[in-house]
Simulated scan of single mutants.
Amino acid sequence: MPEPILLDDPDDPRLAPYRAMRERDLVGRQGRFIVEGEVTLRLLFSEGARFRAESVLLAPERWPGLAPFFQEDGPQEDGPQEDGPPVYLAGRDVMSAVTGFPVHRGVLAVGLRGPEPQPDALIPPAPAPALVLGLVGLTNHDNVGGLFRNAAAFGADAVLLDAATCDPLYRKAIRVSAGAALTVPFARAASGIALLDLAERHALIPLALTPGGGEALETLEPPPRALLLLGTEGPGLPEAVMDRARRVRIAMAPGFDSLNVATSGAIALHRLAGERLGRA
């Protein structure tokens, strides 16, 4: 890895990908995305990450602690090597002027999306066990980020999103996922129906999580190959999707039937993970 490059001009063209970050979160970055914070930076460079970094931007005071990570013979076995991306150093005033808001962590990087995988390519072939999370119509980045974090925690093989679900590489979604959006395989399908068609092709049992489900999650025998389907809070999953799936509910106190979708997903994934977590 070359020596870091000190930049003191907010208008330096090398800082262009970091400019006006909040506004560009909404309109896209032409195949790029932003990560912030040391945890997500390390995951971007980890062996399990499916993306690569285009550049790194650090506050100068963060460099001494992170320098070993960027050295070829440093302590991080999965760290960047000599041919890695450039590392820029800029004062927090410069970073804030470029991004449009105070950068408290002093750690940013630009990632490159690369080609999008096909959903079928992410499903373990039958008859091997498989646990896939399907998201239908989720437009809240906090929930999507939380669900990616849950998927990583409980060993899901992949997350599949319909066309209406928001981008897991949105900056806030990556942060809420604790970087799991950089490591958990994901792909898009056209719709919830397309997810069900995929489940049929790959011998996955579709499970629709809904308060009105006929089966209780706590008594469900986890299928060896499952597609867990989650819908947006409020409307939930479309009836056309639930009609082709087993409807499963989480038991709650009488008179209350509402859980945050990320919380519901965590409970269901924990149940379905079964032997993956060393449980009988």
Rank of each mutant, 00 (worst) to 15 (best):
A251T: 15
E47I: 00
A280S: 14
P254D: 14
D83L: 12
P115A: 15
R42S: 07
G31H: 11
I123K: 03
C166V: 15
I5E: 15
Q71W: 10
T219S: 14
A268V: 11
L44R: 00
G111W: 01
R29M: 11
L272E: 11
F186M: 06
I250N: 02
L198R: 00
I123Y: 06
E200H: 10
G100T: 08
G100I: 05
G65K: 11
I267L: 15
A181K: 04
A59H: 13
G192T: 01
I34M: 12
A67F: 05
A226G: 02
H270S: 13
R19E: 10
F186L: 06
A121P: 03
L147C: 08
R247D: 07
L112A: 09
R244P: 01
L112D: 08
P85I: 05
G231R: 00
M1P: 07
S55Y: 02
L195K: 01
H104F: 10
T232P: 05
E54R: 14
A189Y: 00
M1V: 12
G146P: 06
I123F: 10
I34N: 02
G179F: 02
E233W: 11
A151G: 08
R62G: 06
G74P: 03
L209F: 12
F33E: 05
A156D: 04
V261Q: 12
A208K: 03
N150H: 09
A16G: 06
G31P: 04
L182F: 05
E82A: 15
G48P: 04
A53Y: 02
E72R: 14
E218H: 13
L196C: 02
E116L: 14
V35N: 05
A226I: 05
G91N: 09
L196S: 02
P119F: 09
A59Y: 10
I250R: 02
A163V: 03
V241E: 05
A130W: 09
L277G: 07
V132A: 05
A208E: 01
L228G: 04
A273V: 07
P124L: 14
H104W: 12
D93K: 09
F70A: 07
P254N: 08
L66D: 00
F101A: 13
L138Q: 04
V159G: 03
E218P: 00
F154M: 12
A20D: 15
T40D: 15
P86I: 13
V56K: 09
D8N: 12
A240E: 15
L147V: 05
H141L: 13
D9M: 02
P223N: 07
E239M: 06
L135T: 01
V103I: 15
E72L: 12
L58K: 04
P4K: 07
V176N: 01
A109L: 13
S191F: 00
S55W: 05
R50M: 10
V176E: 02
I34A: 03
P2K: 13
L26Y: 10
P119Y: 06
E72D: 14
H104Y: 13
R188P: 01
P224K: 08
P86W: 13
A240V: 14
G236I: 12
G79R: 03
S258K: 09
P206V: 08
G145Q: 08
L198G: 03
A181R: 02
V35L: 15
A273I: 11
Q30K: 11
E221T: 13
L204F: 03
D257A: 12
P211Y: 01
Y88F: 15
P86G: 06
L133K: 02
V136C: 14
